[in-house]
Every structure is written in structure tokens, then in C-alpha cells.
Design a protein around this nucleic acid. Structure first.
Lengths: 192, 192
DNA sequence: TGCATAAATGACTGATTAGTCAATTTTTGT
DNA sequence: ACAAAAATTGACTAATCAGTCATTTATGCA
């Protein structure tokens, strides 16, 4: 027998509700009771799945990053030129961010927050190492300009955040905006 | 008689202490008692200058933005080419951010926070309108690529945040890093 | 079916905190 | 020097909230 419409398990319901509320109202301004109510479970249930409220916010961060990374890996053109690899990443991140705007906003809002532990940050770093490696390779062989990797990362983040924010406000211009912002990005970082 | 070493007024002491603590520990995780203690005043004093804790965080945001804008306006080359105007802004922002790293981190951390009201955001917008106007002018006459202003803003933010973060970690490379990141930025956005 | 185990519930509590206010100290003007 | 006004103080309170736990409900398995 096939399972139709298997109800989302409670853990996931809690994660989704918390993401929504944290983005809307901030972490400390959202009580665990708020989250439980929004998720449709009892206040005690939250603490079965997450020992503390801090553990919950760290789980959201970690799982969102992991899911995004999985999405980026799909169909990644390993052997291709750096430009094509980056273009692939660009399109995938934009698509993911638009389909998961709550998670994307969450990642942006809480990436620098003191509630996300260094352990979480470390655990998450490896998920995007395949992309980072491509970038380092591209710098080595001169396809892209040699700039500090932190700076590169921050630039990339600014581009993507801006692109996604723009597309969210102007959905019809999605394709064009992705192309245009990639061109600006590529012109900036390409070698020579 | 000249006033030597006039003690910083209590309002400013509270603003400074709060900025430091909010960046370190987050907004809701910092109690007003923490702030008062750090500032060296009584708990009641905070509420003489700021009716609520929310008013305090909005004041920090507003005044930091305003002070930075003033700094940017100094010596702004009004008649110059867009590239030179942007280069001036670049250097000034980098300098300000490095001299006011607490405030810069604060601005970055709380610019998207739900505690900053829309009114505050509106009030602050005008402080950088002179820079925005230069950018729009540059787009009109083809000196820089025509991209949505929100996207431009976000890209700029990413570049600056990354540059400042890098310089903070590698102070000796300050001059070179500023030049290098501007070049990447300019190659990306220049016209044609 | 019945029993054992796991999951879920929500009333409750100990701790924390934003904001108050009556009392005290400092400043100002004469 | 004095008094009136202004600024400052910190003990206090009403409210909120993270996390607990005794009880109930659901699940798996013989």
C-alpha cells in the first residue's frame, strides 16, 4: 500500500514553524510556546525533538544549509570551465532561494548571529567545499582573479542576496535578472 | 577656560555600551541592566534617555548611519567622473568601517532585524541619497552598467563587508586590499 | 487481544527582565 | 548661600518564558 499524504512529521513541522517565526519576529522575540502553537503541537513536544531552544535554531541553520548544498550538487558540471561551474551555481542558488525564501532569509539573518555556535558553522562549512574548491582551482589557473577567499565569499553573498531580493520583488524578470547579475559578477572576477 | 577631557555624556556612554553588547551577545540576550552596568549608570538612567529598549536600538542604528554618511560626504568630488566618486566612497567607507568596527558590525547585523522599524529605515535612507544619485547619474550616461538599484546596493554591501572583514584580519594589507577589491567591483559594474 | 514501550500533552515553576517611581544628589540661577 | 528644578539612583513589580514532569494517548509486537 502506498502512503498518500503522509502527514509531515512533528519535528519537521516544528522546524518550519520556527523558521517562519524567527524570520518574522526574531529569535528571542519568539517564545517556544509560539512555535509549538504555530506547529500545532504541545509545548512539551518541542523539547522531545530539541533539548533547548538554542539546539533548535542551530538545527534549522544546519539543515537549511545542507539541503541547499544538496540542491547545488545536483548536475554540477565537474569537468567544465570555471565560468560554467559558477554559472551553474548561480542559477541553482537563485532557484533554491526563490523556492525556499523563508530558509534563505533565515540563513542570511542568522549567519552572523551569536546563537549559531562555532561547531554548527564548522559542520556546515564542508557542505559547500566542492564549490569552494572550484573557485580555488579557477584562481590557480588564472580563469578568475586571485582575491582572498573570504572576500570572494562575501562578494558572492552580496550578489546573490541582491539578486534574490530583486527577483522576489519582480518575479517576471527572473531569467533576465539572473543573467544580468551573473554578467556583472563574472566581469568583476574573471582573470586578467 | 577650555574644557579638557569633558566626560562623555551618559547618553553616549549608554549608546556605546549597548552597541558593544548587542554585537557580542545579540539584542534580546542583552538586558537593560547589562547595558547600564557596562555604561556605568543606574538602571533607571537608561530610561531617561530612551523610553524603551527598542527606542535604544533604533537610535544606535540611526546615529551610526548618520555619522558614517557625514564621513562619506567629506571631500566628496561632486563634479568628478563616476569612477572617481565611487573610488572616493570606497576608501571612505573602508576607513570608517575600520575605525568604527563595532558600529559597522552592528549595522550589518541589525540592518535586517525586526527591531529596526520601517520609520527608522526611512529616516536613514536620505542620509546616503547623494551617493545614490551619483550612481543613478552614472547609469544614465553609461559610465556604469544599468542594473536595478537594489541589486547594486546589495552588491556594494557585499563587497564592502568582505573587504572590511578581510582587512580586519590582515591589517597590513589594507591599502592593497582596498585597491584590489575596488578593481573587481569596477570591472563588474563599469559600462559596456 | 493485551501488554510494554514510546510519543505526546499541557499545567506548572523558577528564573529573568523591561520599565517604574519615591527618594537622593547635582546643577542652575539669583 | 539658598532654593527650585533637573538629573540620577536602585529597590521593586508585573509579566514573560524556557524547560519539567506526572499523566494520557498511540504504537508495535506477541
Amino acid at each position: 500500500m502506498v502512503e498518500f499524504l503522509k502527514p509531515m512529521d512533528k519535528r519537521q513541522k516544528i522546524l518550519n514553524a520556527a523558521t517562519r517565526l524567527f524570520v518574522e519576529r526574531g529569535f528571542q522575540n519568539t517564545s517556544t510556546a509560539n512555535i509549538s502553537k504555530e506547529a500545532g503541537v504541545a509545548t512539551g513536544t518541542l523539547f522531545i525533538y530539541f533539548a533547548t531552544k538554542d539546539e533548535l535554531i542551530n538545527a534549522i541553520y544546519k539543515e537549511a544549509k545542507q539541503r541547499m548544498a544538496e540542491s547545488l550538487k545536483e548536475g554540477f558540471p565537474q569537468g567544465a570551465a570555471t565560468r560554467d561551474k559558477l554559472k551553474h551555481l548561480w542559477a541553482e542558488v537563485a532557484a533554491w532561494a526563490l523556492d525556499n525564501s523563508e530558509n534563505f532569509r533565515f540563513m542570511h539573518m542568522f549567519s552572523a548571529s551569536p546563537f549559531i555556535t562555532n561547531l554548527t558553522r564548522e559542520e556546515v562549512e564542508s557542505t559547500s567545499s566542492f564549490a569552494m574548491q572550484s573557485i580555488k582551482d579557477g584562481m590557480k589557473n588564472g580563469e578568475i582573479a586571485s582575491i582572498p577567499i573570504d572576500l570572494f565569499h562575501s562578494i558572492l553573498d552580496g550578489f546573490l542576496t541582491g539578486t534574490v531580493r530583486y527577483i522576489a520583488a519582480n518575479p517576471s524578470k527572473r531569467k533576465k535578472a539572473i543573467e544580468a547579475s551573473f554578467d556583472v559578477f563574472w566581469n568583476g572576477i574573471k582573470g586578467k
